[in-house]
């Protein structure tokens, strides 16, 4: 698979850009977190495309963002469970 570049992205419509980024990010995220990969990828796709391109090239950046997403999700699920328990 050839690397995704800014010019490739720029030539695509916005919705398509996110999809292209998602296709690249998903397998990387799936390797870190197989069960939450679809959700985490969706969350990360709300970030600017330029930042996502950087993450594709930097496993460290991606890893820390995935950790952040997992923490946000866990807090969210805990809150939901607490609401239901009331």
């Amino acid at each position: 698979q050839e690397p995704l570049t800014v010019s490739m992205l720029a030539s695509a419509p916005l919705q398509e850009q996110k999809h292209m980024l998602g296709e690249r990010l998903f397998p990387l995220i799936e390797a870190i977190h197989p069960t939450l990969a679809a959700k985490i990828t969706g969350m990360l796709l709300e970030i600017d495309a330029s930042e996502l391109l950087h993450m594709l090239e930097s496993p460290e950046s991606l890893g820390s963002k995935v950790d952040e997403a997992v923490a946000v999700l866990q807090a969210h699920y805990a809150e939901e469970a607490a609401q239901k328990a009331k």
Partner: peptide, 23 residues
């Protein structure tokens, strides 16, 4: 610090064609 990530974001589903290739 507060994260800007949205836990209610829509899930991303990779293309079915990719899944087929991986089978």
């Amino acid at each position: 610090k507060k994260s800007t990530l949205n836990p209610n974001a829509k899930e991303f589903n990779p293309a079915k064609s990719l899944l087929a290739v991986n089978k």
